[in-house]
Design a protein around this nucleic acid. Sequence first.
DNA 1: TTTTGAATCTAATCTAGATTCATAAATCGC
DNA 2: GCGATTTATGAATCTAGATTAGATTCAAAA
Lengths: 212, 212
Amino acid sequence: MNTTSRNTTSAHGTRTPAVKAAATRNRILAAAARTLSLKGYSATRLSDIAERAGVRPPAVYYYFPSREELIAEVMAVGQLRLREHVETALAALPDDTPPMDRICAAVEAHLQVELHLSDFATAVSRNSGQLPEDIRARLRADSGAYFDLWRDLLARARAAGAIRNDIDLRAARMLVMGALNWTPEWWNPRQGSLTGVIRTAQSLVRHGLGVP
Amino acid sequence: MNTTSRNTTSAHGTRTPAVKAAATRNRILAAAARTLSLKGYSATRLSDIAERAGVRPPAVYYYFPSREELIAEVMAVGQLRLREHVETALAALPDDTPPMDRICAAVEAHLQVELHLSDFATAVSRNSGQLPEDIRARLRADSGAYFDLWRDLLARARAAGAIRNDIDLRAARMLVMGALNWTPEWWNPRQGSLTGVIRTAQSLVRHGLGVP
DNA sequence: TTTTGAATCTAATCTAGATTCATAAATCGC
DNA sequence: GCGATTTATGAATCTAGATTAGATTCAAAA
C-alpha cells in the first residue's frame, strides 16, 4: 500500500534510520522500471530486476508481495508521473494561451517525460499493451484520466475553431498519442536531439490539426 | 525454410493430395498470428495457438521446430505482407501522382492491412518491440526494407518541395509510423469506421508535413 | 554485552509451459 | 482391402523462473 512507511519513528518519536534502509525499495522499483523500459514486459525477469538493484531475487519479496505487484506499481507510478508532468506544464501557461499552443506544450511535456525524465513513464507506454488484464484493469482509472486530459485539450481547441473540421477528434487524439508513445521504440539520444524531435512533433501536430 | 513444400509430387511427378493436408500448417500459422495480435507476445501460449487451430499442442511440432520458429515465421510473413500491400498500392498510382498523394496512399494501405486485412501485420506492429533479440535480428532485413520505402517516400516529397523545411525527415517518418503502428491498440470496428480513421490520418499527415 | 527486529542471503520447492516420444488414427498408393 | 506413410495424440519429461523456508548478518537499543 503506502510507499514509505515502516517504523520511521520509535516509541518516543526519535527517528530510526530504518527510513534510510527503505531506499532499497526504491532501488528495486527503479530497477524494475528501467528493465521494463529496456526489455519489455515479456523479457523482464525478476532476476534481471534484482541484479540491477544489487540484490538477490528473494530480497524483492521483502518489499513486494509478487513480481506482478511490483510491475503494477511501476506502471501506476509511471502513469501518474506522466500525467502530473503534463498537467504541471499546462498549469504553468498563461490563462490566455491559445488552445493549439496548449496542445503543443503537452506534446513537449509528454516527450520529455517519456524520453528523458522517467523510466517509469517509458515503461508505461512501451508495455501497456502487453500487460495481463489484471494489471491493466488497475491502471484503467489513471490512464483514463490522462486520456481525458487530451480529450479536453482537443475539445477546447475545436470549440475555439482551432482544429479543422475534417479531423475526427477521437481518431486524431489516438493517432497523436500513438506517435508520442511509439517514440521510445526508435528515439535514441545519440542520433538526433530531443528538442529536434519535439519541434518536429509540435509542427506535425499544429499543422496537422490546425486551420491553415 | 520454404513455406509450403512437403511431398507435393510423387516420384513420377503426379500430384499427391498431401498438398491439401498442409492446410493444417496454415491454420496453425494463422492461429498464431491472430493470438499474437490479440494477446501479445508474452501472453501467447503454444496451447492457445493449438486450441485456436483445433489441434493439440504437440501437433504444432509436426510443422514447426519450435514455438520461437513459429512466431518468427508469423512475423516474417506479417512484415512482408505489410510491405507488399503498400508497395502494390503505390505501384497502382499513375506515374505523375504528386508525392504527397503517394504518402497518403501509403497511409491508407498501411492502415488497411493493419486493421482490416491481416492479423500477421497486426502481430508485427504490436509485438516487434517485445521480441527476443534473436527473432528481431531475423526481421531486420525485411523491416528495414519497409522503413526504406517510407524514407524514400518522404525524401521524394521533400525534394519536390512538398514538405515544409521545419520538419526533420527522420523524426517525421518515425512519428507517422508510430501513429499508424499504434492503431491496433485502440481501433475497434465497433466505434468508428475504418475509412474515418484513414481520412483523419491522411489529413493529419498531409497538413502536418505539407506546405500550407 | 545481550537482545531484537529488520534486511538479506542460500538452498529448496513449485509450477506453468515448452518439448519429446512412443504409439494411435487417418490417408495413400496399389 | 492392405501394408506404408503421413498426421496427430496422450502421457511423460525437462526447464526456466517465480516463490517459500529457514538461516544469517548487522545495527541499534536496552
